[in-house]
Design a protein around this nucleic acid. Structure first.
Length: 875
DNA sequence: TTCCCTTTGAAGAGC
DNA sequence: GCTCTTCAAAGGGAA
């Protein structure tokens, strides 16, 4: 068991308790039986819980016998518990005192709390997560973010904290122990308070600190925001005078009315004070991280935030979760000590009578009992029943609850939509994914693009995952659509921006190398092969990019996208960027004619840890066909780009494997980009992404993106929509995009990441990642498919910078030497077979080795194989 | 003003 | 022993 808890004080006597030993033993036995990552995950989580529970039991044996006085029963000195929640009572490997979840991520190299830095789910952060300032290091955030309760270091109610920690804690306070959080979950003035030792507060939940510790109480009361808390406490005190118990319910909603009501209720119902349940691990986590999520995102709706938090929770490392489990255990323990007679039954029977669903078992279940929102997702609200649309009780749910819930299986909903609900159709996921490719592609062009097939498919819950983005593992993994290839996101999209900037983004970045032109040449247009979407960015350049793609994703989509790229300033047929995104992203950037050209391709893979993957497997959405097929994780990209030599100077081709749904149909694609005139570039032809035919024996840990509960980012009604999620930082994204250089993007080259748990130093220096340095927080856990320490020459082709810079340099040299508009031939590019164009325009053919294949021997890197695809021709 | 939404986990009730 | 239900936090939204 990797995680061991530190025993505290007298509780330490329980270390040798039989229960705990059994727990460990049981876990070990179970681990022997692990056969799947999912099982592993479950076991891990259960082990965490079991362990904490076992400790709790042990603690019970010590503390429960005599509850009076409660706290005297507590160990006088529990060093690891002294700092309450502000500083984790649990030691860290690095010995740093940062028990704050904020620092937890840093300790494990995982910034789970920052979408931009690589959400635990390790997918491109959702657009709403924004980029700056959340790209800041968590520590920096802590420094920059104004503390709501800016206690001075000396004033901070946790005097044991060093000034530094106090600073962090001051930041931490708002989220975790904000005014509302400072409310005492437990009676703030238990009789024991007066007898508590001065250091008592630090041995218990911080929620006790304000009221227990005189100094802290002063400080807290001095703050306006604490006033409410004080009021609450006063109310509680009043209550306590009669009952010796304080209701944590006093500050449930934080509103004065609620407080008043609570106080009133407390006074009226003194004999039945409502003692809230102790928070479980997730609640503690959520309580702490909510503020961060709110800050990072534009979301305010708790339901959506909770979804994010729920996914983050799953993505959270085991150690991290263990901390919260431990906290929860202590919470329960403390709660039990303070309310020895309390039982959850009291609260359970408080308002509603327990309903025993008589026919619940007969109801096929599970998902049939889901409410429309959870069942269909936000992006399929048309499937919702009316009450659900109105945020009222789900009639379906109620019907099912009352025993006649079988109608959902095949019935028509109130909207007349055929509800083909099949909740247990995992086997159909892939089929749906394949057939639903159109939906994927079409979604990008707007809701109107969703055809009936998609609608029908949407009825299936699994289809939700399809229509939603596969990837959205990030901050909003649930907000799948954000990352969906079908979204036809433009490079200017905040989403893509995040993709470009997030080192954790398991995204294949398509970037434009405007090596010789100014940065004004921004990527503009996006072409989605499956959807008809046109984006006109600028009339100056008139870069027409059209793409028609046929792929499994888009099905028969032959949409064309036109975009006019902003020129780099010359106005002579300056192209910009177009992106064909269906799992593959094709970008064409046209900078100043006669300048250097760059062809780059990159594929990124999520550097997720195995445990994260396992956790994700556990996610109930993980089964929704996230394209777990490794073949799709590293699809080879084939593209043909042709244009006038004088027009297209930079071509960037990339494939976002994470946007690829795993289905065979998706594997055959090709991108052809042709420029007819210097002023226009048309992208036409089948856009395909082909994945290697063979599955690599060992895959790097790939983020198994879970489908969100449905979030069509384009749905304005969707609280998780891009509009709402990104409105705050859209500008930043755009600005960043414009300044995005190919090198920067290549710094995040997912392809390299996928092959290199430890980024290999590139012969050519690369710009540092734009965001977080922890590119591979769990890289060590990743089985490396290509263990060779250094990038293979062939790898270098597509491995980010080395290839692009090499190529660029070659081109530049060649151009300088020839002073001609002709692009350097592939002969100058040591990247494999080169097909010389019959015309004057040189043709560059890049053969990409199957990314999943083992690296070819040196010197044989360019041998094309059947699995190799891709030809990028620049004519 | 009240309820709902959403998440996970804990705990009790019911079978 | 298993399943089911409720509740814990949070705050916006709807009725």
């Amino acid at each position: 068991m990797p995680h061991t808890h530190t025993r505290h004080g007298s509780s330490g006597d329980d270390l040798g308790s039989t229960d705990e030993v059994k727990i460990f033993k049981d876990e070990g036995d179970r681990e022997d039986e692990k056969i799947s990552s999912e099982n592993l995950l479950v076991e891990e989580k259960s082990s965490l819980i079991d362990l904490t529970e076992s400790e709790e039991k042990g603690s019970k044996t010590v503390t429960r016998p005599d509850h009076s006085p409660v706290f005297n029963k507590l160990e006088p000195h529990t060093p690891t518990f002294n700092m309450g929640y502000l500083v984790s009572p649990y030691s860290y490997a690095n010995g740093t005192p940062g028990g704050l979840p904020v620092t937890m991520a840093n300790k494990i190299g995982l910034p789970p709390f920052f979408c931009h830095n690589g959400d635990p789910l390790t997918t491109p952060p959702p657009a709403h997560c924004g980029i700056p300032p959340y790209q800041l290091d968590p520590k920096a955030i802590g420094l920059t973010r104004p503390a709501l309760y800016p206690f001075a270091a000396t004033q901070y109610p946790y005097p044991m904290l060093s000034p530094d920690m106090s600073q962090v804690a001051s930041w931490h306070t708002p989220s975790v122990y904000s005014a509302s959080s400072f409310r005492t979950p437990y009676p703030s003035s238990l009789p024991i308070n007066t007898t508590l030792p001065s250091d008592f507060p630090f041995r218990f939940s911080p929620s006790l600190l304000p009221s227990v510790h005189a100094t802290s109480h002063h400080v807290l009361n001095s703050h306006p925001a604490i006033g409410a808390s004080t009021t609450k406490q006063d109310c509680g005190v009043q209550d306590s005078t009669t009952n010796n118990r304080y209701s944590r319910n006093l500050d449930t909603k934080g509103s004065s009315n609620s407080q008043a009501n609570d106080c009133k209720d407390s006074s009226n119902d003194k004999k039945k004070p409502h003692i809230k349940k102790p928070l479980n691990a997730f609640m503690l986590y959520m309580k702490e991280m909510r503020a961060k999520v709110v800050a990072e995102c534009t979301l305010k709706e708790s339901a959506a935030i909770n979804q994010i938090l729920g996914r983050r929770w799953h993505a959270l490392g085991r150690e991290e979760q263990a901390k919260y489990y431990e906290l929860a255990r202590r919470e329960r323990q403390l709660h039990m000590q303070m309310y020895p007679d309390w039982s959850s039954r009291t609260n359970a029977s408080r308002g509603k009578k327990r309903k025993r669903k008589q026919d619940a078992n007969s109801d096929a279940g599970g998902n049939n009992m889901k409410k429309c929102r959870a069942r269909f997702g936000l992006d399929q609200q048309n499937q919702w029943c009316k009450p659900c649309r109105r945020k009222k009780k789900c009639i379906r749910y109620m019907e099912a609850l009352h025993g006649d819930g079988h109608e959902e299986g095949s019935g028509m909903d109130d909207t007349g939509n055929l509800s083909q609900l099949s909740d247990d159709d995992d086997d159909d996921d892939e089929d749906l994914l394949v057939s639903g490719g159109a939906g994927m592609g079409s979604s990008g062009s707007g809701d109107e693009m969703i055809d009936m097939n998609q609608d029908k498919l949407a009825d299936n819950e699994d289809t939700e995952s399809m229509s939603q983005s596969l990837s959205s593992p990030g901050c909003l993994s649930g907000l799948s659509s954000l990352q969906s290839p079908s979204t036809t996101t433009s490079l200017a999209s905040p989403l893509n921006m995040n993709m470009l900037t997030s080192p954790m983004t398991p995204v294949i970045n398509t970037t434009t190398n405007t090596s010789n032109n100014n940065s004004n040449a921004g990527p503009l247009s996006v072409i989605n092969s499956s959807s008809t979407e046109q984006q006109t960015a600028s009339a100056s350049s008139q870069l027409l990019i059209s793409a028609s793609g046929s792929g499994s994703i888009s099905g028969s989509g032959t949409g064309t996208g036109t975009g006019s790229g902003l020129g780099s300033g010359t106005g002579s047929g300056l192209g910009s960027v177009s992106s064909c995104s269906i799992g593959s992203t094709c970008s064409i950037s046209n900078s100043t004619p006669n300048t250097s050209s760059t062809v780059s391709s990159s594929i990124a893979a999520t550097p997720n840890a195995a445990n994260e993957r396992a956790m994700m497997l556990r996610n109930r959405f993980s089964h929704l066909g996230m394209g777990l097929n490794p073949d799709q994780l590293f699809p080879a990209v084939s593209a043909t780009v042709s244009s006038s030599p004088s027009t297209i100077t930079a071509i960037s081709l990339a494939t976002n494997s994470f946007n690829c749904y795993s289905n065979a149909g998706m594997k055959a694609t090709s991108v052809t980009i042709a420029a007819a005139t210097p002023a226009s570039v048309s992208v036409s032809g089948p856009i395909s992404v082909s994945a290697p035919a063979s599955t690599p024996p060992s895959l790097p840990a790939i983020s198994l993106h879970r489908n969100p509960i449905g979030a069509n980012p384009r749905d304005i009604n969707n609280p998780l929509s891009i509009n709402q999620l990104t409105k705050r930082r859209e500008d930043n994204n755009v600005a960043l995009l414009e300044t995005q250089s190919v090198s920067a993007a290549l710094a995040h080259n997912p392809y390299t990441h996928s092959h290199s748990p430890h980024p290999h130093p590139q012969p050519h220096s690369q710009p540092p990642p734009l965001t977080h340095p922890h590119l591979h927080p769990h890289a060590d856990q990743h089985p490396h498919p290509h263990p060779h320490p250094h990038p293979h020459p062939h790898h270098s082709l597509f491995s980010s910078s080395s290839f692009s810079q090499h190529f660029q340099q070659r081109l530049s040299n060649h151009l300088a030497a020839t002073n001609s508009s002709r692009l350097s031939n592939s002969s100058n590019i040591n990247i494999g077979p080169v097909a010389q164009s019959s015309s004057d325009a040189p043709t560059l053919i890049i053969k990409r080795r199957n990314t999943s294949d083992p690296p070819p021997a040196t010197g044989n890197s360019a041998t094309p194989t059947s699995t190799e695809t891709g030809a990028i021709s620049v004519s």
